[in-house]
Design a protein around this nucleic acid. Structure first.
Length: 139
DNA sequence: GCCAACGTTGGC
DNA sequence: GCCAACGTTGGC
């Protein structure tokens, strides 16, 4: 059984389009313990929604987790993780935060409650609502 | 540009 | 260990 996640990124720093162009990337630079701890639970075959913060404020695509998270070298000696993901599907239209906030079934998403958390778990039902009810993905 | 919600740092 | 000051993220 795959687990489902949401990864936040500021698109001017790294966008889903860049991920699609590169096919895969090492998702790194996470410097928050709660987010790092979630990364420990990433496993091959999991899915991660990609959310663009800042001006866009929308879920834009789905990535597939290619392997467990691995240690990220840090010049400051920190104990951090990075994870290899691949682009999987793009949404036909981005799913705006504004729409996400209107659904009672999604009101417990950490996205809405913990604005600073950049890696968060989501339930399978929540994932399905986001990808099938609110949004539609490309083939 | 402002503010809320954290997280971090450093003095005590 | 507490708390004030400061920094960062991110929505509005």
């Amino acid at each position: 059984m795959p687990s489902y996640w949401l990864l936040k990124t500021e698109p001017s720093t790294y966008s889903f389009d860049q991920l699609q162009a590169e096919r895969q990337t090492l998702w790194n630079g996470i410097r928050n313990y709660q987010a790092r701890n979630y990364l420990r639970d990433f496993k091959k075959g999991d899915f991660a929604l990609i959310y663009h913060s800042g001006k866009e404020k929308a879920v834009v695509g789905i990535a597939k987790v290619l392997d467990q998270a691995i240690h990220e070298p840090d010049p400051d000696g920190g104990d951090w993780l990075q994870v290899k993901i691949a682009s999987h599907r793009k949404f036909k239209k981005p799913v705006p935060l504004q729409n996400i906030k209107t659904l009672p079934e999604l009101k417990n998403l950490p996205l809405l409650k913990q604005s600073r958390l950049s890696v968060m778990p989501i339930g399978e039902k929540e994932f399905n609502i986001l990808t099938q009810t609110l949004g539609e993905v490309c083939d």
